[in-house]
């Protein structure tokens, strides 16, 4: 199986408290923020690696994983990190962050799919900066491919994937014939979430995403990394979404501390009257 995984560099959400809004109010000030790969995209990469191996011998590649990002030169670090964890090849589409929106990213990926011809495109369900949650679905429509969003489990069948999706009422299982687009949720990196056609049914992965050992980090520097431009992929690319203003969420003030459960129930019954 050949899998295309799209990765986005985002400001580190674990340092989320440091997000500042520029005095003008029309931009988020990213100066001083640490960058990292969007966590949901890291999970997509982990799922792609699991789908192209047998679980027992991760070095034995049973397919190809191509990682792609859209962004400036610095984003190549994101790609190198993905190559170090096991991706085979990388593509960077040169663009500045402020020249991109979800519509353009989907159009650019559609064009790349045309040349790369993957069996599967795997993406995070959303990026934790824009929280837009649209690229996978848009891409599936542009390609006229089936989609399975918010995937918690993936099981490879002959020419298809059985995907367990996290939906409001529980888990909805879809069978999508390849080629397809799948976006992943948190639990896709659980020990028994992803099985390729070659993984033993009893196999359990370590929880979470894999880390690259030092020799792999060195070797990743020699793996192929191609560059394309946004204009090449989307001629006349123009934004259709513009942020006009940013603001902090309204603060909610701290209430009072109660001394015990009895006082708590008193307050809920007699002051807030919510019981």
């Amino acid at each position: 199986m050949k899998v295309l995984v799209s990765l986005k560099r985002v400001s580190d959400p674990d340092n989320a408290n440091k997000i500042k809004i520029a005095a003008s109010g029309n931009a988020v000030d990213t100066a001083g923020l640490e960058w990292k790969t969007n966590p949901f995209d890291e999970y997509a990469l982990e799922a792609a690696l699991r789908l192209t191996e047998n679980g027992k011998a991760p070095k034995l590649r049973l397919g190809e994983v191509v990682v792609v990002t859209l962004g400036p030169k610095e984003c190549e670090q994101t790609l190198r990190a993905a190559l170090a964890t096991g991706a085979d090849r990388a593509i960077r589409v040169d663009a500045t962050d402020d020249a991109l929106d979800g519509r353009l990213v989907a159009l650019a990926l559609k064009n790349l799919v045309g040349t790369e011809k993957p069996d599967l495109v795997l993406l995070g369900k959303q990026a934790v900066d824009g929280d837009s949650n649209q690229v996978g679905q848009r891409l599936a429509e542009l390609l006229d491919w089936p989609q399975a969003t918010f995937a918690a489990t993936i099981r490879e069948e002959a020419g298809a994937l059985l995907v367990g999706r996290e939906v409001d009422g529980g888990v909805l299982t879809l069978r999508v014939k390849l080629p397809a687009v799948v976006t992943v949720d948190l639990r896709i990196v659980s020990p028994t979430s992803v099985y390729s056609a070659h993984t033993e049914a009893a196999h359990k992965y370590a929880e979470g995403v894999r880390f690259a050992p030092l020799p792999a980090i060195m070797a990743a520097k020699k793996k192929p990394l191609d560059t394309k431009t946004l204009a090449e992929l989307v001629p006349g690319a123009a934004l259709s979404t513009r942020a006009l203003k940013f603001e902090k969420p309204a603060a909610r003030s701290a209430g009072i501390k109660v001394k015990d459960v009895s006082e708590l129930v008193d307050k809920l019954m007699n002051v807030s009257k919510v019981l």
């Binding site: 989320a16 408290n17 900066d129 824009g130 929280d131 259709s240 006009l244 940013f246």
Partner: peptide, 14 residues
């Protein structure tokens, strides 16, 4: 809501 709930962005669509 954006940035994991750290900011609200007001956007226009063209």
């Amino acid at each position: 809501p954006m940035y994991a709930g750290n900011a609200f962005g007001t956007v226009e669509l063209t």
